[in-house]
Simulated scan of single mutants.
Amino acid sequence: MTRRILPYRIPSEDVLTAQKWLLVTEDGEVTMPEALPDWDYQMDLHLRRTVSVDLDRARVQSGLPTDAALMLAAVWTATGSNLSGPAQHVRLVEGGTRKVELDIRLKGADLGGLLLLDTALVLAERRSDARPSSPRRAGSVLWSDRESLRLQGDAPQFPMAVIDFARTSFPDEAAWHLQISGGLESATMGSLLLLVNERNTVTATAFENAGKPRPVDRIVLSAVYADAARIMMEHALGNGDFAEDADFPDGSLGATMLSLFDQLFPGQSITDIRLRQRQSPALFASDLQAAVKIFEVS
């Protein structure tokens, strides 16, 4: 592990023993994987981790008095949504070895892309009596680590909402509508919104069951994702700035579109696919159905 050089003393790595993050599911706990390819924005995450801290050694090696209050904190960051926030913090004022159970729940609507989980042991309060070589500011980091979970699977990922289409300008009997706004430089999370008509119970139920779909739910979700991929590609190909050499910011709509294009049409140029879409829209639609493997459900 790379060790940062800080302007104050910090304890050795072995004063903490941090277990791996565990993903809590309906079927039990599993070690958090590197990626969740079936994740979507309807899927909340429940994560747990146990951390043991030798508080006496942590204070002594940092040059802190025995009554210095410490804190173990967990913070999350999602690159897909550009959101972050505190997950949990536990104040540590006692001595000896303390075992801390971190137990966090994150809303799927706030996530996307790469989920970063930072755990840190910090000084809880400012110490005006600290030695020159010791940490003194509240929040001074004594130890930290980071683990990540990739949430972006092969299917298009976007936030969604279930609404009554009768109260909108959309046709009452339509099942869904993918709304795209903003330019290619805009953040994906603020540019894409999948609206599902609550009156279409088959589709609404499929998304409710997205975490553990039935065979019929998989078929519906496959149709929605195929249609969404078509709409996204048509939107991208209709923009002249959409090109292989375009440098879109991470987390932007353009970067998302380029990533999706590479998944659907590997080894093919945007110019060729744009020409095919313009000259033969029906053939393009069939090509895209084949690319997303529509209705190939397990």
Results as ranks from 00 to 15, higher is better:
257 M>K: 07
26 E>H: 14
94 E>W: 02
36 L>G: 11
58 A>W: 00
243 A>Y: 04
56 D>K: 08
160 M>T: 13
121 L>F: 01
55 L>Y: 02
17 T>E: 12
156 P>M: 09
3 R>H: 11
151 L>E: 06
215 P>R: 06
170 F>D: 06
80 G>V: 01
7 P>Q: 07
212 K>Q: 10
17 T>N: 12
31 T>G: 08
151 L>A: 11
155 A>L: 15
21 W>C: 05
228 A>H: 01
196 V>M: 06
130 A>H: 01
294 I>W: 03
54 D>V: 05
101 E>V: 10
239 N>G: 02
145 D>Y: 00
249 P>M: 05
34 E>S: 09
218 R>W: 04
206 A>Q: 05
228 A>T: 13
42 Q>K: 08
33 P>F: 04
28 G>R: 12
252 S>K: 10
171 P>Q: 00
66 T>P: 08
205 T>L: 07
241 D>Y: 05
165 F>N: 02
198 E>M: 07
46 H>S: 14
117 L>G: 02
213 P>C: 10
212 K>V: 10
261 F>S: 09
188 T>L: 13
223 A>E: 11
289 Q>A: 13
298 S>F: 08
135 P>Y: 12
93 V>C: 09
199 R>T: 12
116 L>M: 08
142 L>W: 01
298 S>Y: 04
161 A>L: 13
213 P>M: 05
190 G>E: 13
136 R>I: 05
151 L>I: 12
165 F>V: 06
20 K>T: 15
59 R>S: 08
128 S>G: 09
224 V>I: 07
95 G>V: 10
283 L>A: 15
57 R>E: 00
87 A>C: 11
226 A>P: 03
115 L>W: 00
41 Y>M: 14
51 V>A: 02
279 Q>T: 15
210 A>E: 04
222 S>A: 02
56 D>R: 10
100 V>R: 00
172 D>V: 15
159 P>L: 06
236 A>S: 03
298 S>I: 13
267 G>F: 03
244 E>G: 04
99 K>H: 08
9 R>A: 15
272 D>K: 09
116 L>V: 13
43 M>H: 11
90 V>F: 03
101 E>I: 06
257 M>E: 10
62 S>Y: 03
89 H>G: 10
297 V>E: 02
275 L>P: 06
200 N>R: 11
248 F>P: 01
43 M>R: 14
237 L>E: 05
55 L>T: 06
85 G>Y: 04
297 V>W: 00
95 G>F: 05
183 G>W: 02
148 S>M: 09
3 R>I: 14
252 S>H: 07
147 E>Q: 15
69 A>E: 14
84 S>W: 12
184 L>C: 05
150 R>E: 11
17 T>G: 13
124 A>R: 00
144 S>L: 06
46 H>A: 15
241 D>I: 01
4 R>Y: 10
263 Q>C: 09
61 Q>W: 00
38 D>I: 09
19 Q>M: 12
251 G>D: 01
297 V>Q: 01
85 G>K: 00
60 V>H: 13
292 V>C: 03
172 D>R: 15
178 L>T: 15
177 H>C: 11
188 T>D: 05
53 V>A: 00
228 A>W: 00
2 T>M: 06
19 Q>C: 10
26 E>T: 15
222 S>E: 06
96 G>D: 09
245 D>V: 04
75 V>I: 10
272 D>V: 11
283 L>E: 15
233 M>C: 04
156 P>S: 14
21 W>T: 12
167 R>A: 15
185 E>V: 08
50 T>E: 05
26 E>V: 14
